[in-house]
Each structure stands twice: as structure tokens, then as C-alpha cells.
Nucleic acid binder design. Structure first.
Length: 584
RNA sequence: GCGGCGGUCGUCUAGCCUGGACUAGGACGCCGGCCUGCCAAGCCGGAGAUCCCGGGUUCAAAUCCCGGCCGCCGCACCA
């Protein structure tokens, strides 16, 4: 049955036009999927709900941008992807098989090869005359296999560009400008929804592992010393219907635990199970988001990744797992604490100062010990070496100097001996108006196509041998269907008028007069249309129509004048009873 | 990339082992018409298949053989 459900979903997806494999007429290419008419609508609604949860509801701390898919090589040198997203491989010149070069060297020679350059590895292979482990043929030079898609920018082949494997770098690279236009406030979340590409070696599992897909993510920048004020955090948490999340920590796994446990988010942060409040906060929002998409709280949890499982930039990562029928627990989002890794790398590679300055509410007055030395005496005594001595002195810690002077009566520095009476230590008040630092980053990152699959998996139900796609009303690709009960000219006229008015009021609407009414209900149930308006003979007499609920198949009568408002309320979650009382 | 299994109308499938009567059968869906007073009713008619692609064997290939592509499962890989 579990297997059948997956098959049934894939079949439904193809048959009704949610998605299918790309380039079908050319035999297909692994890792690429087309979205059909319904798939596009569903995806758009999933994305707009994401935007609702993560951007709109946080408009005071999150802004959204859009950056290119193609970036110059330098960006991925800085990000570490060219280095870490790459595997060194050698090819057998005889049989054509490919091997991980570093693994081969380690395996055959016991030499640690990880991190060596391709030249070094090639040299080792030549020196030891390593050959193909399968056929014994000679090996090629070590080459890099990179999961980044490569391209050329402009007419010069030397100008290499890469397709981004994540949208994140766009936010880091443009951080300074976005920070500027956001009036230099922290915390600041920069969101982006966009396509990414990864040249996976062997993608499988349909929509779950694609070579090109859509990511929705936030790079959330904050001050690591004061991530968030108590007031702000309380206010944010108060907006959430639920503060508990289910997590499975690395620590718990070490103890043999396999099941997640439930914990209050504040407690998890306090207990340092989650390293920064923001990571925890966005995980909680992620939980609400998936819940709004029809996933039960007990059908998801956050799985902490062990250090060796984490990406190179991450200090802590939780994967949000959701249960689906075929594959068990699948990852729909990743929550990483990227620290200041990315910004500091881009600082180094670009030479731009990406630190932010934070002014204290009141300047800090610090008493600080300063060294004063007798420049005249040192100059006279050491002449040309004086400058060097001054510099060395300025680097000294006053406490250290004090200690030496107490013990020995003089200070030995840069080959010079300075007597106690030539050095003075004074305490000075210093005003510190603020600090300059590299913000830290918490990143919630969602794979949209995976969410789409998970949503379908959870929405798929069978009722009386009919498929009913119980998509949450908010994300259903089609909002409402309009049917004349039978093909009666008068009824059709009324129905078409209602259909047009719904369409013109912003609803995705289906009108259908073919076949029996039952068959039409069945058709729209199968693609998850939440509401159906049916015009019947009574409509002609009293100007009412019925509104049918996809999930219960129950109907209420409402006045024709109220159809638009009733549908709007219904899609926002109103019950049939409410609709009846308000619009009946 | 390795190993196993598979690929036939839009969808699901029969046929393949044992080559020929296959003009490739069925169901659902789709299109046209009739009918229909609320949950895939019925009747009539119709369209729809490079049998994944390429090569080979044979008088003859959906069927046998080889290579490729794609899918699923296991291994490897998976920022």
C-alpha cells in the first residue's frame, strides 16, 4: 500500500499535469523535471506561503532579493565551493573507469591524500606507478570532478562562470549593499527564492534529487554577542502557536537514541542544544510552515548532523525531516549555523570590509592601562634601533611589562634593556562608542520541489475508491470549480456568470458542464480543488447556489451575490457552518 | 560508476519465456453526439502506440543478441 501510494502519486502527477520527467521525447535526462500546469500553480502557492511565513510576517527583520544564477569563479573560490564541492578523479586510459584519486592513493599506498593538490596526487601516482585497480591499465592525470556546473561568461573561454549550487552566495556578496539600504540594522535576514544547479553524479528518487531545482532560503545576519533582545525574542515567540519542536541531537544519537524528543525551543537554546537562538527560531517557524502545508507535527522532526556530515561552512546543522510514504524520512529543509565563515571569506577574497559597526546605546568608558616610555632616553641610548624598540613596546601587554619590571627591575625587549624608571604605566579612560564585527549567520534553507512532493504525498487520499487530493485550501492549484447541475440553458447562463465573476476576482477557477455532475466532482477532487459551486434549478428561483466542500462532500446554500466573499472566506479556512450563517 | 530488475496508446497494462495469424488486445482517460434534478450511471461514434533509441541475428523481431538512454532497488557518491 505504501509503495502503491508513491506509484499512484507519480501516475497522477503525469496524468493530470503536475510534473513529469524532462526531455521525454529524447529519452529523458536524469535529474530534470518539468512542471505542468497544475505543478506550476502548486509550486507558486507553496512559494507564496513560504514568503508569507518567512518574509511578510517578518518584514521588520527580513527583506527579499534576487541575484544571478551565474557567478564568476572568484565567488566560489571565496565560498569554498570550488575547493570543497570538488572530487579529484583519475580515469583509466584503457577501460575508461573513473576513481576517486585521493581514495585510490590512500587505499593502495596508505598515504593521506585528502587536501593534496591534483599535481601532488598525479606525482604520487606516477612515482608509485599506480594502475587501474580493475584492469591494470595506465591512469590519466588527476582531474577535478566538480559538482558545480561550469560555463563561460562572454566570448573569452578564460572567463569561467559557474551556476550557483545554493542561492546563499548572492546574499553574502551583496550583504553590504542590502545592509546599507536596510538602514544598517541587525538582525537582518536576506531572503531569496531561486533556481540552483548541482551536477549530481547519479541523481535518482524522482523529484527528491534534482540537478536543477528551486531553493527558498534566508541568510539571517546577527551580532553573535547579542543575537537578539529579550523583548524582540519574546514578541516573535508570542506570534507562534507552538514553541515545542521535535529534535534528535547528535548527542542523543551517540547514546543510541533513534527517536526524536520534544523540547521547548527556549529550553533547547538555553541548554545549548541549539547553538544560537536564531537557528532555533527559524526552525520553529519552519515547523509551522510545514504544518500549514498539511504535515502533522508528529510527522516531522529536526535531525542534527554530525560534524563529518555537515557542509564545510557549518558549525551546526539540523535537517528538517518529513515522513513520506515511499522513502520514509526525507529532508525538506536544512538549518545551518554558518557563523561568519562566508562573510570573512568574501572579505579576504574581495578585499572589501564587510564588518558592521554597532554603536552602543551609551559609550563604554573603560579604564585602560597604557605604557609610556622615555623616548628621549631610548633614542639616545639605542639610536638607529630605537624605532624597532618603540614598535615592540607598543605591542606589549602593560600587565606583562609590569610583571617583568617588578621581578627584574628592567625590561628586556628587542635586544634592549630598559630600566624601570624609563617606563611608566598610566591608567587612561577610553570612550568606546561601538564595535566593529562580522555578523554571524543562521540559515534556514528549503528545497521547494521536495516540499511539493511531500505535500502531494500527504494530501493524497482515497475515498470510496476515488482519489481526493486534500491539499490545504491555501495551496490548491485551482481555487474553485463552477458547475451547472445539468445542461440547461438557463442554468448554464447563471453558472457562466458566476464563473466569470470568480475569475475576475482573482480566483483560479474551473468551469465544466460536460458529463454527469458526479463525474465532474470526481475530476476536481482528484486535483484538489477545495470548493465547488453548483447552480441548480432552485438557483433560478431564489438566487442561491450550493458550495461543496471537497473533503466532506457536504454542501451549503449561499446567495449568488455572496459567492465571491464566501469562496474567499472558505479558502482562508472558514467552516461550512460559518459560510452558511454569514452568506446563506 | 558497479550489480539486479524493468521500459508497449494520455495513464495503467496484456502479449515477450516458446519469433510468424499483432492491422499490437483491454481498461480508464480524451474528443463529438445523445441522455442526465447532486457525487466517476447509460447509449452511439471517434481519435490515439517511432512496442525507449541504435545496431545485429533471421525469410520474418514488441518478442532473441549487443551497445546506449531512462527508471526503480542495493552498493558507492550526496555542499
Amino acid at each position: 500500500m505504501q509503495e502503491d501510494k508513491h506509484e499512484a502519486i507519480m501516475e497522477l502527477a503525469k496524468r493530470r499535469g503536475f510534473f513529469w520527467q524532462s526531455y521525454e521525447i529524447y529519452g529523458g535526462v536524469a535529474g530534470f523535471y518539468d512542471l505542468g500546469p497544475l505543478g506550476v500553480r502548486l509550486k507558486e502557492k507553496i512559494i507564496s506561503l513560504w514568503r508569507e511565513f518567512f518574509v511578510k510576517k517578518h518584514a521588520h527583520i527580513v527583506v527579499e532579493i534576487e541575484t544571478p544564477i551565474i557567478a564568476p569563479a572568484r565567488v566560489f573560490e571565496a565560498s569554498g565551493h570550488l575547493e570543497h564541492f570538488t572530487d579529484p578523479i583519475v580515469e583509466c586510459l584503457k577501460c575508461g573507469r573513473k576513481f576517486r584519486a585521493d581514495h585510490l592513493i590512500e587505499e593502495k599506498l596508505g598515504i593521506k591524500a585528502e587536501g593534496l593538490s591534483i599535481e601532488e596526487m598525479t606525482k604520487i601516482i606516477r612515482e608509485h606507478d599506480l594502475r587501474c585497480p580493475v584492469c591494470g591499465g595506465p591512469l590519466s592525470d588527476v582531474k577535478l570532478f566538480n559538482l558545480l556546473f561550469k560555463t563561460t561568461i562572454g566570448p573569452y573561454s578564460s572567463n569561467t562562470g559557474y551556476l550557483r549550487p545554493e542561492t546563499a552566495q548572492g546574499m553574502f556578496v551583496s550583504f553590504k549593499r542590502v545592509y546599507e539600504v536596510s538602514r544598517k540594522r541587525l538582525p537582518l535576514g536576506i531572503a531569496q527564492i531561486g533556481r540552483v544547479a548541482r551536477n549530481e553524479i547519479s541523481p535518482r528518487q524522482g523529484m527528491l534529487r534534482l540537478r536543477e531545482f528551486t531553493i527558498a532560503e534566508i541568510e539571517f545576519f546577527f551580532d553573535p554577542e547579542e543575537p537578539v533582545s529579550d523583548d524582540m525574542f519574546r514578541e516573535l515567540l508570542d506570534q507562534l502557536p507552538r514553541r515545542k519542536i521535535r529534535i534528535l541531537t547528535v548527542e542523543a544519537k551517540k547514546k543510541g537514541e533513534e527517536k526524536p524528543f520534544e523540547i521547548n525551543i527556549e529550553e533547547a537554546i538555553r541548554e545549548k542544544l541549539i547553538l544560537t537562538p536564531w537557528l532555533g527560531y527559524w526552525m520553529t517557524v519552519a515547523q509551522e510552515y510545514m504544518h500549514a502545508l498539511g504535515i502533522g507535527y508528529d510527522e516531522m522532526y529536526f535531525d542534527e548532523k554530525a560534524p563529518e556530515e555537515r557542509a564545510h561552512y557549518s558549525a551546526q546543522t539540523f535537517d528538517q525531516l518529513v515522513r513520506v510514504s515511499r522513502y520514509g524520512w526525507i529532508e525538506v529543509s536544512g538549518h545551518s549555523y554558518r557563523t561568519d565563515y562566508d562573510l570573512s571569506r568574501h572579505m579576504r577574497y574581495s578585499g572589501e570590509d564587510l564588518r558592521v559597526f554597532k554603536q552602543y546605546k551609551e559609550p563604554l568608558v573603560v579604564k585602560k592601562k597604557h605604557l609610556l616610555w622615555d623616548k628621549a632616553w631610548i633614542g639616545r641610548t639605542y639610536r638607529s634601533r630605537a624605532r624597532e624598540i618603540f614598535e615592540a613596546l607598543s605591542r606589549m601587554n602593560p600587565e606583562e611589562v609590569l610583571k617583568q619590571l617588578e621581578e627584574k627591575g628592567y625590561l628586556e625587549i628587542a635586544g634592549a634593556k630598559i630600566p624601570k624608571d624609563k617606563i611608566k604605566i598610566v591608567e587612561k579612560e577610553e570612550k568606546i562608542t561601538g564595535k566593529r564585527f562580522i555578523p554571524h549567520v543562521a540559515e534556514p534553507s528549503f528545497g521547494v520541489e521536495r516540499i511539493l512532493y511531500a505535500v502531494l504525498d500527504h494530501a493524497y487520499t482515497v475515498k470510496d475508491e476515488r482519489v481526493v487530493l486534500k491539499l490545504p485550501r491555501l495551496v490548491a492549484p485551482i481555487d474553485v470549480a463552477v458547475f451547472p447541475l445539468v445542461k440547461d440553458e438557463n442554468i448554464i447562463q447563471v453558472a457562466r456568470k458566476i464563473w466569470l465573476s470568480l475569475m475576475n476576482n482573482g480566483f483560479y477557477t474551473i468551469y465544466d458542464e460536460e458529463d454527469s455532475i458526479g463525474r465532474r466532482y470526481a475530476r476536481v477532487d482528484e486535483i484538489g480543488v477545495p470548493a465547488a459551486i453548483t447552480v441548480d434549478y432552485q438557483s433560478l428561483e431564489d438566487n442561491t447556489v450550493t458550495l461543496r466542500d471537497r473533503d466532506t462532500w457536504e454542501q451549503v446554500r449561499i446567495r449568488i451575490n455572496n459567492v465571491v466573499d464566501a469562496v474567499r472566506d472558505f479558502l482562508r479556512g472558514a467552516s461550512l457552518d460559518d459560510i452558511k450563517h454569514k452568506y446563506g
